[in-house]
Every structure is written in structure tokens, then in C-alpha cells.
Design a protein around this nucleic acid. Structure first.
Length: 765
DNA sequence: GAGCACTGC
């Protein structure tokens, strides 16, 4: 038997097609081949023919057994493509059969065959993400009907890496029988029968195919994480299940709260599989700690001094806290090494905004002893929640958990999302502790009392849908064909006030009419992977003769901050930023940055150029990527790309007016005091964020976001003229709806001025 | 005079 592939082959990522001629085609379904037949034979070019015997001959859909699958898996030919199986395949097969989930294959099949919706719970190490979809393939046989099995993941990296792993397990090339689909990258083809994808990607597909007709089975993995996309998909699948009795649905989750999923899906049957992890001993503090950071540092140093070999993971809440803690631990540990003969201690920070090469450092091995036979070295990783789910570090034996994390909260009353340091949930605490038992038995030190754990921590972190502004979600639901939002069955329905705010916002943006139905503009806006205000601004941009500029700006506003400001070089970074500054504000400054970045000088060596100018290359490249995607959607939607010459006297005014078309609800006016600003309608006192390039002589500003930290700030601001508000958003700026006060008076004055001008221009009217 | 936890389209 020849090993056809000694080298793992990396997929040639298929980029989304540009300039697609078919207006009905969905840019997210790049692999929706027109020649896709109903039978497998036509899909793989007839290579197998219709009559060729495969390892699956004799398999009857939804009537197979684990024993049958076992025989087919033993070869000699690959049951899905009739190719000879490689030695590597058989090596992996052995380890697969040892996974806990394998013992329950028949039990799984019995349930899968008997019911439409199944809840499957498995702890880490059970093998559920890689094995269950394969179990499904052997029984659901999607290729017999020209369908696919989808398995969703909350994160891109997971979708990519699991797909690669399963392709190896099935001895197929990634992108053929097994593939993945994430934003910007679709590695699937006409032969694909198992597709790993992000939950957001499946949601996008559902917006164009409300019944998800391409799939014969949908597996939602990591459902317990309760991302916005997962929650919406669950609600949708519940409805689709009624319309499509042939569709199978598997909800996979961690053990906690399994009954909630069962109840939600009309008492769906449950299958539980044990995980394979090592025991973790939990320690609590006898008394509550006053200062959790100080207690955390003390605990880390005590572990280093007293506990046997093994690495430490400490959970803190944010960048600054982490960098500060790293400095302090390093100082103290060096002293311990010098004076108390402790082993060397290497400390690594870990948080999301850290560049990838620095994130990778956490995988470096612990330092060796300073001298032969001396006490062993140790590694400490000080990280945010990113270490709780997204990144797994093997070799961690000790976890220090102060019990806090930064969480997004939404206040519908003032329409502001903000980040708040809050106590974690029991589920989170359990997940954190589990990080100590990946390779051998470990210990977890909780810096709170056992009583606090039992009585004060909530069971689960509130799902994202209860903590977000839902404008975007409501638009998505409408596009999914859900007309009656109030009766749409979500697992945790959001507060009516939050829903009302979202409907109101979409109505002002003219995405929904007064009956709450999607308008033409709303339909267009839902095509874009953007917040509604950004989408509306982009769609309106041709009217303001600046589509190309707004396209760039929209992309820039939907990626992480492009300006880099390291603590060690604040002054220099500010000087560099000043080079790009536009007197009318930050949005125009960002546009200047983008134009410079696309210029010849910068493109010659973009890495060097970005470093010199204190800009994030990653963010700019990502903006470039987003821009391309948005441009394709604009072209497909037949939106004109109109711009004036750069030297046109209205070039920047046009852009500022286009900004108003999307962000007229995010405007503030300077107070009579001249120091602070007041937001229109809400009457919130705000300050311009100190990072702004705008000089404080601007009477009216439009802002991109409201940040609640030590003070109320509006960040990323542009100066605008009040007459534009009356002109571009007359419904929202209907003066009679404003309460008496400075803002109303100011608007009235502007209105009078405009009227007078019109009269002098057109006498007699 | 500043603090962006983490994802996703």
C-alpha cells in the first residue's frame, strides 16, 4: 500500500470570486457549483461511476451500525473515495478507537437514527469535535443525496485546525471530502461532504437559504459558549426542523446546563460521554482577599517557592494589569533566585492584542535549572480569558484564579456597550481549573472563599445576546425571514427594552419601515458584514460622491485600532500620528493613513513603514481585506462606486456629509461651558477622548463610539455642520421631538438660518 | 490626558 502523501498538503485557499455575473449568487457561497448534480457520481466527475463498489456498499441511510462502520474504516480502500489507505491512516485509526467517544458509537447511532434533534455532551478530551461528525458521515451518507454535513465552531482557528485533523484522520486532502469555510477563505469543493465552518458563516448562508437546503445534518459544536451566532442559529434550526423533517441536528456542548439545551429543543434526547482529563485539586482562600492582584502575585511566588515542578497559569483581566503583574513577578522571582536558591522563573504575558509572534512565546519550554542539580525552572503565563477557551497551553499544572474577567455589558437606556471587570461564573471557574489538568494531575488556587464560589458566582456567564446592542442581530433575524421577533423562540430572550432600542435604531436608519418590515435599504444593509450604521453610510456614499473613500473608511472602522502607541514611546507615536492629522477629525486622519499606506513608499516595505510610523500592519492589511470584500458586495448589489477627484474643493466635505448619513444618531454638541459636550437627544455629558486629533473648537461632532471608562468619552470624532443633520436626517432631527434646551435652541437657529438662505436664493417662495 | 476582555460576518 503506497503512502500517497508523505507531506501534509496545505490547501490552496479559494478566494471568493469577483465580478460574479449572477446577481442571485451569494458571495459567501463561493463553492456553490452550478454543475452540482444530485448524485455523487456527477459531483466527483464520475470518477467512481454510479456502480463502483465502495466500502459503503450495502449501507442504508440511517440504518447503519457501528460494526458496519468499523469494517468500512478498516479498509483496504477509503470508503469515501475508493483510494488506497495510507499507513498513517491506520496509525491514527488506532488512537481514534481509544477515544472515550468511540465506546459509545452504537449508542450514538441508535439515538441519531431515532430522533431529529440530539443533544450531545462531552468534556474536553472526549474526541467529540473530531469523531462525532465522522460517525454522522457513515450513517447520514450525505453524498448519496448530494448534500453536506456541517459542523460549526465559534472560532476560525478551530474550524481550520479541526478540519485539517479530520482530513488526516479520513486520509483525504483538505478541501476535498473534508473542508472548511471561514470569512475570506473557503477551502471546500464539489466533493466536500463534511464542512467545518464558523457559526457566523452558517448564519450568513442561512440569510440566503432559509431552510439550509444544502445540508442533511447540522452539528452545532461548543453550543455552551452561547455566542450570538450560535443562539440565533439554535432559534432558526428549531424552526427549520419543522419545515424540514429530513434534516438532522446535533447540539454539542460541555456538560454544564445540558438539560437547558434538552428542554429548549422540545426534550431532545441526551447522550453524555466522559472526558479524559486529570484530576485537579481545588484550594480556596479562607478569607476574602482585598486586593486580588496582590493576592495573585503572592500565590504565584508561593507556588514557585514550595510546589514541585510544573508551569503556572494566572488569570487577570486586561493588558495593563497583566504587563504590570509580569514586571512585579519577574522582579520578585529574580530576588528569590539570588537570595533563596529558587529555580529560575520565566514570565509571559498573554492577551488578544499582543502580536502573534509574542503570543507564540507562551509555548516555549520552562527555563532549565541555573546550575546542574539545582531547583528546576518554571514558566508563568499571565493571561486574560483568551487562555480559558481560545488558547491551550500544555504543561500547566498550577492555575491561579482571582475570579474576575472583563465582560461586555450593554445598557439599553443610554445605548452604550462597555467593558466592566466582573466576577466570573461557576462554569468559567471550572473551565479555568480544568486548564491545570491537561497533561497530569494539577492544582487550582481560587482567590475567593468556597462560600463565595457557592453563593455569589452565577452558574453561567450571561449569553452574549443579553449583553449586546441588538441592532445588527435584529437586522439579521429580519433577513432570515423571521417577521415576528417577539415570538421568535430564543433560548434566552433579551430584555424587551433592548429589542425596542434596536427596532427604533433600525427605523431611524430607514432599514425597517414603521411596521417593522425590512425596507429595500434594510435588505441591502443586511448583505454587508457590518453594523447597520456603517452599512447605511456605505450604501449612501454614492449620493455623496465618495464611495471609494467611504469604502476605505468603513473597512478601517471595522478592524482593530490602526494606531500603535507603546508605553515606551508615547511621544514619538503621537508625533507620527500628527503627520497624518486632518484638522476636521479622526475619521479623515484614518483615511489619510490608509492612502499613505497604499502609496508607493509604504508598499515598498510596508513592515518597515508601519514600524516607523507607529501603525499596525496587521490592522491595515486586515482593513485591505475587508475593503475588498465590501467592494465585491457593492458591485454585486449594483451600487455605483463614485468619487470625485482628490483636488475637488468638496472632497473632504463630501466624506463628512456621508458620515452623517450613517452616524446622525451619534452626534454631540459643545456645551455653553465650552469644555464638555452633550449628546443629542440623550443629553449625556461627554468629553472628547484625549486621543483625538480634533481641536476643541468644533461646535458639533460626530462620534464613532462612546466609551465608558474613568469618564464618559466619545472616541474617533469628526467635526460636522448642524445644517447637514437637518438636511440628511430630517426625521431624526425633527425639532419638535427635541426637548427644550441648548440643543433644541441651536437647531432652531440653524433651521431659521437655512430658511432665510433659501428665501433669499429663491425670492417669492 | 488615555486602559480594547474575547469572538464573528
Amino acid at each position: 500500500m503506497a503512502d500517497r502523501r508523505s507531506e501534509p498538503e496545505m490547501p490552496q485557499a479559494k478566494r471568493l470570486r469577483t465580478g460574479d455575473m449572477d446577481p442571485a449568487s451569494n458571495p459567501y457561497l463561493a463553492h456553490h457549483y452550478e454543475d452540482e448534480g444530485n448524485g455523487y457520481g456527477s459531483r466527483n466527475g464520475g470518477r467512481n461511476g454510479g456502480s463502483t463498489q465502495t466500502g459503503l456498499s450495502g449501507f442504508k441511510r440511517h440504518q447503519t451500525t457501528a460494526a458496519q462502520a468499523d469494517v468500512a474504516e478498516n479498509g483496504p480502500l477509503n470508503p469515501f473515495n475508493n483510494n488506497p489507505l495510507s499507513p498513517r491512516y491506520f496509525d491514527i485509526l488506532k488512537t481514534r478507537k481509544d477515544l472515550p467517544v468511540h465506546k459509545q458509537r452504537q449508542e450514538f447511532l441508535n439515538m441519531f437514527q431515532q430522533t431529529q434533534i440530539l443533544v450531545f455532551v462531552g468534556e474536553t478530551g472526549s474526541g467529540k469535535t473530531t469523531q462525532i461528525p465522522q460517525f454522522v458521515l457513515f450513517d447520514d451518507l450525505p453524498h448519496f443525496n448530494g448534500k453536506l454535513v456541517a459542523c460549526t465552531q465559534p472560532r476560525r482557528v478551530a474550524a481550520m485546525s479541526v478540519a485539517q485533523r479530520v482530513a488526516n484522520e479520513m486520509d483525504v486532502k483538505l478541501g476535498e471530502e473534508v473542508g472548511y469555510s471561514i470569512r475570506f477563505e473557503d477551502v471546500t469543493g464539489p466533493k466536500t461532504i463534511l464542512k467545518y465552518m464558523t457559526d457566523g458563516m452558517l448564519l450568513r448562508e442561512a440569510m440566503h437559504d432559509h431552510n439550509l437546503t444544502r445540508y442533511s445534518c447540522i452539528i452545532l459544536d461548543e453550543a455552551h459558549e452561547r455566542t450570538l451566532a450560535t443562539d440565533i442559529l439554535m432559534g432558526l434550526l428549531k424552526e427549520v426542523a419543522l419545515r424540514r423533517p429530513d434534516l438532522k441536528i446535533v447540539i454539542m456542548s460541555a456538560t454544564l446546563d445540558a438539560q437547558k439545551f434538552q428542554r429548549y429543543f422540545n426534550d431532545a434526547p441526551l447522550l453524555a460521554v466522559p472526558g479524559r482529563t486529570h484530576p485537579v485539586e481545588i484550594f480556596y482562600t479562607p478569607e476574602p482577599e482585598r486586593d486580588y492582584v496582590e493576592a495573585a502575585l503572592r500565590t504565584v511566588l508561593q507556588i514557585h517557592a514550595n510546589e514541585p515542578e510544573g508551569d503556572i497559569l494566572l488569570f487577570l483581566t486586561g493588558e495593563e494589569e497583566i504587563e504590570d503583574a509580569c514586571r512585579k513577578i519577574t522582579l520578585e522571582a529574580d530576588e528569590m533566585t539570588r537570595e533563596a536558591d529558587a529555580g529560575p522563573l520565566k514570565v509571559y504575558p498573554l492577551y488578544g492584542t499582543l502580536p502573534p509572534h509574542q503570543q507564540q512565546k507562551i509555548f516555549e519550554p520552562a527555563p532549565p535549572p541555573t546550575r546542574k542539580g539545582g531547583p528546576p525552572g518554571r514558566k508563568v503565563v499571565v493571561g486574560t480569558n483568551i487562555a480559558e477557551t481560545s488558547l491551550t497551553i500544555d504543561g500547566i499544572v498550577y492555575v491561579v484564579d482571582p475570579g474576575f474577567s472583563k465582560q461586555k455589558v450593554y445598557n439599553p437606556r443610554i445605548r452604550v456597550e462597555s467593558l466592566l471587570v466582573s466576577p466570573i461564573s461557576k462554569a468559567s471557574a471550572q473551565q479555568r481549573a480544568g486548564r491545570a489538568g491537561r497533561t497530569r494531575p494539577g492544582k487550582c488556587f481560587r482567590l475567593y472563599t468556597e462560600a463565595a464560589f457557592k453563593k455569589e458566582l452565577i452558574e453561567q456567564t450571561h449569553p452574549e445576546i443579553l449583553r449586546s446592542n441588538l441592532a445588527n442581530t435584529v437586522l439579521e433575524l429580519k433577513k432570515l425571514g423571521i417577521d415576528d421577533l417577539v415570538h421568535f423562540d430564543l433560548m434566552d430572550p433579551p430584555a424587551p427594552e433592548t429589542l425596542m432600542r434596536a427596532l427604533e435604531e433600525l427605523n431611524y436608519l430607514a432599514c425597517l419601515d414603521d411596521d417593522g418590515d425590512l425596507t429595500a435599504l434594510g435588505k441591502l444593509a443586511s448583505e454587508f458584514p457590518l453594523d447597520p450604521a456603517l452599512a447605511v453610510m456605505l450604501i449612501s456614499s454614492p449620493e455623496f460622491y465618495c464611495s471609494n473613500e467611504i469604502l476605505s473608511l468603513t473597512a478601517l472602522l471595522s478592524v482593530p485600532q490602526v494606531f500603535v502607541r507603546p508605553a515606551s514611546a508615547k511621544k514619538r507615536a503621537d508625533e507620527m500620528k500628527a503627520l497624518f492629522a486632518h484638522p476636521d477629525g479622526d475619521q479623515l486622519t484614518m483615511l489619510n493613513v490608509y492612502h499613505a499606506f497604499k502609496g508607493a513608499d509604504a508598499q515598498a516595505d510596508s513592515k518597515k513603514w508601519c514600524r516607523e510610523h507607529f501603525l499596525s500592519l496587521r490592522a491595515l492589511q486586515s482593513a485591505d481585506n475587508v475593503r475588498q470584500q465590501l467592494k465585491r458586495i457593492m458591485e454585486k448589489s449594483e451600487l455605483d462606486l463614485i468619487s470625485t477627484d482628490f483636488n475637488d474643493k468638496n472632497y473632504y466635505t463630501n466624506i463628512r456629509r456621508a458620515l452623517v448619513a450613517g452616524f446622525f444618531m451619534q452626534v454631540a454638541k459643545k456645551d455653553s461651558s465650552g469644555k464638555t459636550y452633550k449628546t443629542v437627544k440623550d443629553d449625556q455629558s461627554v468629553l472628547l477622548h484625549p486621543s483625538t486629533v480634533l481641536q476643541v473648537d468644533s461646535e458639533w461632532v460626530l462620534y464613532n463610539e462612546f466609551v465608558l471608562t474613568t469618564k464618559n468619552y466619545v472616541r474617533t470624532v469628526t467635526s460636522i455642520k448642524p445644517e447637514w443633520l437637518l438636511d440628511i436626517a430630517p426625521t431624526y432631527y425633527d425639532i419638535s421631538t427635541f426637548k427644550k434646551g441648548e440643543i433644541r435652541t441651536a437647531l432652531e437657529r440653524v433651521n431659521d438660518k437655512v430658511k432665510r438662505k433659501q428665501q433669499t436664493k429663491r425670492p417669492g417662495r
